[in-house]
Nucleic acid binder design. Structure first.
Length: 581
RNA sequence: GCGCCGAUAGUGUAGCGGUUAUCACUGAGCGUUGCCAACGCUUAGACUCGGGUUCGAAUCCCGAUCGGCGCACCA
């Protein structure tokens, strides 16, 4: 049985969307090349993402190295947490999580090093749970690709396992760029790398893949979104925590989902909405799309709420293509700690707050000469005292088990009223994270149709057509002379030139019959075919043929580029592109 | 990593120890062709890799690689 996955992969290979990498040398699992059409399709998918997140939401794009230094991934937890301690049975060669094997013997097995785990296994004579064989030395399998920076191996570098970290690391710069105002966001589209143990399923699980991520920094006390009203009525297919327990999803509006607490807050709801708009705009079928909430135990401990956009695929079922999480202040805190840098935002109050503060000022001019080296300690001890303790005739202190008695003029204190104009807060981070490769595969699958040709007397001809949205189709128009005649080729070339000047990717094809050429273009999703015939020579008109309906209109050659641009980018209906034929 | 199955032109396939590796589609060229995979002629193109058995291997055996499925893994 040939399923849709096989058909897509076969088409993708044959027509130049996806090729296994290094195929000449036998290929390597987990790597794919994007061929000429695939690269263009991917670029267009990314550009729609840019249009939404960068241009319309205003989250500027940055570009950081794909290699990161060790500190970053210590802070992010990938150095310590993105690996598992494994031990292999010497007899049956089964791999086991070493920390799981010793969890009944020691308290915190996940804090132990590989060597410590090996020792514990040997001491306690732990054997293979499967066959009772001897277990080998414990080793850390980290899913990051490690390399070294510069000569030697002193400075470790890692290929980034996600694009997100750069936005956290650049936080102080971004904050200045956005002139100290929350909320703001930054995005990145780029490669990420994970050394998967056993990648499979084509482009669904890759060792090198493309992410499009946004990190949006918001005020933790205000998780509303100014654009929420505008999207509140959008109905999505929700698969909530509760829904998963009951095994059913529900169709409700985002507004209702936020009001009833299914979605934690407006900002996440808004991100779900733009994710929905994005995915359907690039060609994902809405009925094969759902938003699944992470279960409590599935969510990272620091996350406030997390939703995945999942797409239904023929072979793999529901696959995760987008993750949308409220990561709270976890990442900024982690980097603040690791870098010993303040990663907070000063947020002014609407009105300054009056705060009463008790201020103690030790009289250092008196304490210094009298206590010499101890003066500092005494001063600090004085500052810690309360008003009652300072108000007596004498002040008594014990410093380093030495009793000290001071006159009351050793210190001045007062209660001052200060105006506080704001405070430093650690923003919370909303992270929509898109897997571009998976999205591209999904929309190939959702765009792929086989149609029975309706010609009479013909055998069961099947028309393969890729119904990609015109704005992401790699080839946007084909120009076809009806016959291979010099007279017809000449105007065709003129048309090609005008389309190219307008930024339209266009192909020329005069090989084979016109029907064959239409079919070739249907298969790669070319939305429009422009055919030059003998009437063109008489009145300067051509036919435009629409991929999906196979209908045709006759339109003027003189403004053909504008006409095609309107069809592709500006939502002009095909019927308005010319006179029906 | 483990187990099972598989790998032949661009694609899909036949061949399962013995000529020059089958067929279809596809691609290219020429002719023909007045709008949906027409036709004729010409032409291009493959046994995943490495060992072994054998007089002889695409075919049998072993290993590797890749792919599919199941297990494990998927912060």
């Amino acid at each position: 049985m040939v399923d849709k996955y096989e058909k897509i992969i076969e088409l993708a290979k044959r027509r130049g969307f996806l090729w296994p990498s290094f195929e000449l040398y036998g290929g390597t699992a987990g790597f794919y090349d994007y061929g000429p059409l695939g690269a263009m399709l991917k670029r267009r998918i990314e550009n729609v993402w840019r249009d939404i997140f960068v241009i319309n939401e205003g989250y500027y794009e940055i570009e950081a190295p794909t290699i990161g230094i060790e500190d970053i991934f210590i802070a992010s937890g990938h150095v310590g947490g993105f690996s598992d301690p494994l031990t292999e049975c010497q007899k049956c060669h089964e791999d086991f999580r070493a920390d799981h094997l010793v969890q009944n013997i020691v308290d915190m097995p996940d804090t132990l090093s590989a060597d410590e785990l090996t020792e514990i296994i040997n001491k306690n004579n732990i054997r293979c749970p499967e066959c009772g064989g001897k277990l080998g030395n414990v080793y850390e399998f980290n899913l990051m690709f490690r390399t070294s920076i510069g000569p030697g191996s002193k400075r470790a570098g890692y290929l980034r396992p996600e694009t997100a970290q750069a936005m956290f690391v650049d936080f102080p710069r971004l904050l200045k760029f956005y002139r100290d105002h929350l909320p703001f966001g930054a995005t990145q589209i780029g490669k990420a790398y994970r050394n998967e143990i056993s990648p499979r399923q084509g482009v669904i699980r890759l060792r090198e893949f493309t992410q499009a991520e946004a990190e949006i920094f918001i005020d933790p006390r205000n998780k509303t979104h100014p654009g929420f009203k505008e999207i509140a009525d959008i109905v999505l297919n929700f698969y909530s925590q509760e829904g998963q327990i009951n095994g059913e999803s529900q169709q409700i509006s985002i507004g209702a989902a936020v009001n009833t607490g299914i979605i934690a807050h407006e900002f996440l709801g808004y991100c779900l909405a733009i994710t929905y708009r994005y995915l359907t705009r690039v060609g994902v079928s809405p009925e094969k799309l759902r938003f699944r909430q992470h279960m409590k135990d599935e969510m990272a401990h620091y996350a406030a709420d997390c939703w995945d956009a999942e797409i239904l695929s023929d072979r793999f079922g529901w696959i995760e293509v987008v993750g949308i999480a409220d990561r709270t202040d976890y990442d900024l805190k982690a980097h603040a700690k690791q870098s010993e840098t303040d990663l907070t935002v000063y947020v002014p109050y609407d009105r300054p707050k009056k705060v009463e503060r008790f201020v103690v000022k030790p009289n250092m001019a008196a304490l210094g000469p009298r206590f010499k080296g101890k003066a500092g300690k005494i001063a600090n001890a004085l500052k810690a005292l309360r008003q009652e303790e300072l108000s007596g005739e004498f002040i008594e202190l014990t410093i380093d088990s030495e009793h000290i008695k001071l006159e009351k003029d050793a210190v001045v204190f007062e209660t001052v009223t200060e105006e506080i104009h704001g405070e430093n807060i650690i923003p919370h981070v909303i992270e929509p994270s898109f897997g571009i490769d998976r999205i591209m595969y999904s929309l190939l699958e959702h765009s792929y149709f086989e149609e029975k040709a309706i010609e009479e007397g013909e055998e069961d001809e099947v028309r393969i057509v890729l119904r990609l949205p015109p704005q992401v189709a790699p080839v946007q128009a084909a120009v076809l002379p009806l016959l291979t005649r010099e007279k017809l080729i000449k105007p065709a070339i003129e048309i090609i030139e005008s389309l190219r000047k307008a930024g339209i990717l266009v192909t020329f094809d005069d090989s084979g019959t016109i029907g064959r050429r239409y079919r070739r273009n249907d298969e790669i999703g070319t939305p429009y075919s422009i055919t030059v015939d003998y009437q063109t020579l008489e009145d300067g008109t051509v036919t435009i043929r629409e991929r999906d309906s196979m209908g045709q209109v006759r339109a003027s050659m003189s403004d053909i580029a504008d006409n095609i641009c309107d069809l592709i980018y500006r939502g002009k209906s095909f019927g308005n592109a010319g006179r029906r034929v």
